[in-house]
Design a protein around this nucleic acid. Sequence first.
DNA 1: GTTGATTTGTGAAACTGTTCACAAGATGCC
DNA 2: GGCATCTTGTGAACAGTTTCACAAATCAAC
Lengths: 222, 222
Amino acid sequence: MKKVSDPTVSRLSLYLRILSELQEQGQSTVSSDELARRGGTTAAQVRKDLSFFGTFGKRGLGYGVPDLVAKLRSILGLERRWRVALVGVGKIGAALLGYQDFRRQGFYVEAVFDADPGKIGQRWDGLEVRSAADMEAVLREQEIDIVIVAVPADAAQGVVDRAVRAGVRGILNFAPTKLHVPPHVTLRSVNMTVELEGLSYALSNGEREAAGRRRGVGCDRS
Amino acid sequence: MKKVSDPTVSRLSLYLRILSELQEQGQSTVSSDELARRGGTTAAQVRKDLSFFGTFGKRGLGYGVPDLVAKLRSILGLERRWRVALVGVGKIGAALLGYQDFRRQGFYVEAVFDADPGKIGQRWDGLEVRSAADMEAVLREQEIDIVIVAVPADAAQGVVDRAVRAGVRGILNFAPTKLHVPPHVTLRSVNMTVELEGLSYALSNGEREAAGRRRGVGCDRS
DNA sequence: GTTGATTTGTGAAACTGTTCACAAGATGCC
DNA sequence: GGCATCTTGTGAACAGTTTCACAAATCAAC
């Protein structure tokens, strides 16, 4: 199990979602071709992605759905509980707190911080908003694994630096700015502005022709 | 100006953000090296990205900041006003409505829809929530360019299909599901679950070693 | 047990995106 | 003007990902 590319990992996540649906519907087996059609990729890609981690299918038959769900959950590290902290209870932070879907996948928000004295002490979803000043101590104390950054752009790097100092090794950034972390920390960013501007570019220029014809189906570069 | 890759377009968006900051600070000129350092990429990459669209720099001197800002805004299609509609006023939708930053870049939310009768007629930020049943007619009438999908996963594909039928050519999806669109429509997706699971994978497996050392700086694959 | 219809797993080929390396243009100084 | 220094623009080399193509495994039917 050497180096697996980022797009591959994202697709595993997608496969898992599709497989979970199939499992709910009681389907017991699935082919790489069906998985590919539902996931907007190709059968060869599906098989190659899975082959990095072992051989899970049966030739002539396909993949066992519950079996593959279990394997993917194990590969993605979703069998354990992840301790998450949220920093910034503005619009986006509040929305994330309300979005309970995370919990189903094992991500538990266990601490919430904000710099605004007016918000400190408020309760959100059973959690007391704590002062950003206490962040490092609390992150250590509660052994937080992942920090979600939902503060204004100019405060984001500071939050990241302090989280890293407190031993956090995973960061999910919603602030519209590029962040820098040391090599042992993994950073993922969600940037709505970049996505919107990507749409703007595609709609302005003749992308609709070029991109569409490369493959038969529409072009989701999620 | 042939086919430009998606990562390149995303980086242009990033460069524009950095340049805007530099402009506010009154810096008149910038080198590809400085832009690269701030953007977490390499000088060669910056120059290659820009070279797809023309030659904007002066050798020995760098790029004129206000000049490059103008060029990038033009390339990305940000000189016009984009008409945006939001579908779904749940937690995420409400957060997006409150997030006024879009407007500064020329994206104006001009219509809001929801399927819940209890929400129809409510006002959000000066806009009346309209019935999802009227969506197609309103999208056409108001000449909406881009639809933001913020509904539950199982409703998302239906919303997309109707938006496409109403002539919309750009879709930004926040629902945690893979969507399919015809070739002439551009789709971008923001999927927090995929990002979190990517973190989970990286933290579970030995990614911290491998990924970090490839380059000197931390690894943001935003 | 043999045949036929499937479908996986995977090396090799094709493709796409990134990095390198350097010639050429620009400026400033003597 | 000539020389030293800087920084861009870009073809070529490189690296990484995706697609192709096919041998091997499995099953059902006869």
